[in-house]
Design a protein around this nucleic acid. Sequence first.
DNA 1: TTAAAGGGCAATAAAATGGTTGCGTGTTTC
DNA 2: GAAACACGCAACCATTTTATTGCCCTTTAA
Lengths: 115, 115
Amino acid sequence: MSRRRDSAALTLERNAETFAALGDPIRLSLVTKLIGSEPRSISDLTEGTRVTRQAITKHLRVLENVGVVHSVKHGRESLFKLDPKPLASMQEYLAVIASQWDDTLKRLKTFVEET
Amino acid sequence: MSRRRDSAALTLERNAETFAALGDPIRLSLVTKLIGSEPRSISDLTEGTRVTRQAITKHLRVLENVGVVHSVKHGRESLFKLDPKPLASMQEYLAVIASQWDDTLKRLKTFVEET
DNA sequence: TTAAAGGGCAATAAAATGGTTGCGTGTTTC
DNA sequence: GAAACACGCAACCATTTTATTGCCCTTTAA
């Protein structure tokens, strides 16, 4: 049973990391810029912000570490695109909270909660 | 048009704050504990954690500031309960990203078919 | 073949975060 | 009434985060 406990804790940690990655206005705006867009370069993504290219680079790495974006090198520039898959479990999580009054989902919560 | 831009920026800032509030393992576990539960006291919520009551108090205030929880005083203890409403816009946001993914697949499919 | 553009790396510096301890106040309980 | 419980406040510390600057390397373009 400790295996389930561990994996629950790991999931919690992972979800928290992903939430944290989106928990910054600049990073959230980067994600927004990438919605429905072709892959964009760092310089492109830096335009219109009040911070330097290096700052944007660091933010992009944070997003990349949780898998929300990922980059491909293309000549001298590296292009970033969105990958919404890692957000699935966050969506599920929020869905559970939103339906907290539902008894069936309460039991699911109990399962998830096992600490 | 600048009005819309401003309110968009504010929304972005607010959403980022809410994401950030959930972007910590302890806070996320607090939220999980409160799912489908009666209002719980701070001491109660501190049990089973490796940090002090004060630390938990601070985390609860972070969650309260974005409206994810709120507290009611009841005698000598203050009870916290979950409020899922503020998470709605986060859910919408994630839904938009997910739908963008569908669009990407469509474009990819179109591209492949045209080739 | 230079000059410019796109980026990576490293060394900072400043600010925010997470946590603790100590102490004080109000509230139950015995 | 005194002890135990629940909590708030403030000072403080360590770590992490955010952002900048300077320098160098590669790729593209004039």
